[in-house]
């Protein structure tokens, strides 16, 4: 497991609400450098909401989300762009630009944020596609490749500017177990070789056991974090029965007929 001295994201007293309905109520946690950090919970518990707040798409009701001391909630203008550049995001369906080839998709952030010569951009973009095993498909349009490949290409695009943090929203959703396992391997490899910190929203248990070295679990009834730790450890030793149930894939008592 990664060293825990090094806090890379600091979430403090975070409350998220849609109008008057509070989804997450006053939670605080840290993400440490090099971790594969999984946000977990049942449907509707606010996992994706939390992720969208962390990447600055939504503004929290209260609280702060700091990247290395810089709060993304209050940052504006150039400062905000500078924070946004520190992380990459893979959206649930890839969100590749359909009118561009994979290479052009990966090249886009390079064109906007670096002063590299054009052939250097091609080379860098190609290395990113190489890292996710899609070099041969550089000239393909997103519509011409499979869903799993689209997600890998989306990871390559998220890595274009070499961010230290990658946010992945449901990376395994809609993928077959083999493709999903390949994606898990890719995440582990990138984490190991590039020391990228991953923040992943998922509820695929096999995937969580395979990759996560820390999970936090949200519960929609209390709107708080109900578990925080190593998934294998939580499965066996959590003092919260609902958490153990979740990890052991048992249906909830009250949902049984």
């Amino acid at each position: 497991m990664a060293s825990h001295e090094d806090t890379i994201i600091q979430v403090r007293n975070f409350t998220a609400a849609y109008g008057d309905s509070v989804v997450i109520d006053d939670i605080s946690f840290d993400v440490h450098r090099g971790e594969i950090f999984v946000i977990l919970g049942g449907s509707g518990c606010g996992k994706s909401t939390l992720l969208k707040h962390m990447i600055g798409l939504y503004e929290p009701k209260t609280g702060s989300i700091a990247f290395g001391g810089d709060d993304i909630v209050t940052a504006r203008g150039d400062k905000r762009v500078e924070i946004l550049r520190r992380f990459g995001v893979m959206y649930q369906l890839g969100a590749l630009f359909g009118s561009m080839t994979l290479l052009e998709n990966v090249r886009l952030p390079l064109e906007e944020y670096t002063d590299l010569p054009p052939d250097a951009m091609d080379l860098i973009a190609t290395t990113k596609l190489d890292l996710v095993g899609l070099r041969e498909f550089a000239g393909h349009m997103p519509a011409e490749i499979s869903g799993g490949m689209q997600k890998r290409a989306a990871i390559a695009r998220a890595m274009a500017l070499d961010p230290g943090i990658l946010f992945l929203d449901e990376p395994s959703a809609g993928l077959d177990p083999i493709t999903s396992a390949e994606l898990d391997d890719l995440i582990k490899r990138l984490s190991r070789s590039l020391q990228i910190t991953f923040v992943i929203v998922t509820h695929e248990l096999p995937s969580i056991y395979a990759i996560a070295n820390r999970v936090i679990m949200l519960d929609k009834r209390v709107k708080k974090i109900v578990a925080d730790g190593d998934p294998n450890d939580l499965r066996e030793n959590s003092d919260n029965p609902w958490v153990r149930q979740f990890f052991n894939r048992q249906a909830e008592e009250h949902s049984k007929p």
Binding site: D122, T126, T127, A138, H140, S193
Partner: peptide, 20 residues
């Protein structure tokens, strides 16, 4: 070194960027 070694220059001799 590990990062640089991840890419084999031989494979990048020609950069086929697949523009068709």
């Amino acid at each position: 070194q590990e990062m640089v070694g991840a890419f084999d220059p031989e494979h990048y001799k020609t950069l086929d960027i697949g523009r068709g």
